[in-house]
Design a protein around this nucleic acid. Structure first.
Lengths: 149, 149
DNA sequence: CGCCCCTATGCATAAAAATACACTATCATG
DNA sequence: CATGATAGTGTATTTTTATGCATAGGGGCG
């Protein structure tokens, strides 16, 4: 099948030179013996998950692959499942979770976009939550406590 | 100037949601109070060096292709590339970065040896910066903000 | 063989992004 | 204050990319 070889050729070209448009890519491919149209390249580029940036097309480096987003469990579920306890120190809360779950829990909290939260940092089993002030820290502590319980 | 704020808004939107076209970005910006045209966004996207891939626009994460890579990048470049926003809570600053870049960013800040910085802790996409007092925290916040923009 | 289904592709065209040009506001300077 | 340089933007247009529709070439199978 020509398609497969063409995909390989595209990968190589894209990895080795800056290619600014599908038409430029097309011309380079023609020189290598692949005579296809821009429409086909548009599809190929999708199939290969190539990215286009300031320097032309690029391979889906580090990033790229899996696109799983959305439908994450509710913060309540997460906390109920992994949250162990919350403690307060001035405007900061320290949330202890089961081992290894701090990261996802912090992510969940971030996504809530609460205005009691300035930001979170997660280690392995501890999430540090920074609040704007003690008052809001207390309020959040109560809420989290209730969710954990 | 509104441009600066708009750039920040674009970074955040792009980092948090899948945006498939400049027109979609435009609609989201309008809801946030930025009323601009697609032409302007095309320029903004260039200025911000955003990439477009299968999942819409994205921040210029560790993409490794390109040519410009001289010495170690200045803290200014790092923040310009990966920093999203800074928030202050008393004597602490919370710096939100693109996913996975908090660690290097924190390293860069540490290396600056600023006297507004007592220390930093980095998670995945958040750096916590501890300052000696509110006054210096504010000063640093302004400086970082300016670097991000 | 004749028929159906499926993949790959081209052509024409729609949709999206980039850009040429013009206008305005700002700012430093003579 | 006039003047000229400059940045930011919008409008109209061009260029680039994506896609709807149709066709050609393979299999598989009755």
């Amino acid at each position: 099948m020509a398609k497969h070889d063409r995909h390989n050729a595209i990968r190589e070209l894209v990895a080795s030179a800056a290619i600014a448009s599908q038409d430029e890519l097309r011309r380079k491919l023609v020189r290598r013996g692949f005579d296809v149209t821009q429409a086909t390249l548009s599809r190929d580029i999708h199939e290969l998950s190539l990215y286009k940036g300031p320097n032309g097309y690029a391979m889906p480096n580090g990033n790229g692959n899996g696109d799983h987003e959305d439908d994450l469990p509710s913060i309540r579920e997460v906390l109920g499942g992994f949250g162990l306890k919350v403690k307060q120190a001035q405007n900061q809360l320290v949330l202890v979770t089961t081992a290894g779950s701090a990261q996802p829990v912090a992510l969940g909290i971030d996504h809530e976009d609460w205005d009691e939260v300035v930001g979170t940092i997660a280690g392995d089993d501890t999430v540090l939550i920074i609040c704007p002030d003690m008052k809001r820290a207390s309020r959040l502590r109560e809420r989290l406590d209730e969710m954990i319980g």
